[in-house]
Amino acid sequence: MDPESQAQIKRIADDFGSDNIMVVLGASDIEGAEIAAETLTVGDPSFAGPLAGVSLGLPVYHILEPEVKESVPEEIYEQEVGIVSMIVDTEEVSRAFRKIRETNK
């Protein structure tokens, strides 16, 4: 996750408190999403950005998980995400993100 995004999320967490926000990721490659999730929970694994050594512990979901899908109006979801859900294994995404949340609890 690039340092600019890290800084922006850190600022939001500082302003509103980590307990009041959650993160929804959209990257279609799971490995990249996993790195982002790790960065936003336990800290920047590359120790290069503003979240190096900063454990925000934010709950991280992926836009393709059923919990998120259910909370978005169907028409908007189809328009924005529909085509990506055709080409990504959404069950694998769910499994990966449940594991991330469990591991980083």
Binding site: M1, A27, S28, D29, E31, G32, I35, A36, I83, V84, M86, I87
Partner: peptide, 15 residues
């Protein structure tokens, strides 16, 4: 961690 840009694009085109 920046993904495979061409592959993602081609999958979307295929979809």
């Amino acid at each position: 961690g920046s993904g495979n840009t061409p592959l993602t694009n081609y999958k979307i085109m295929g979809a």
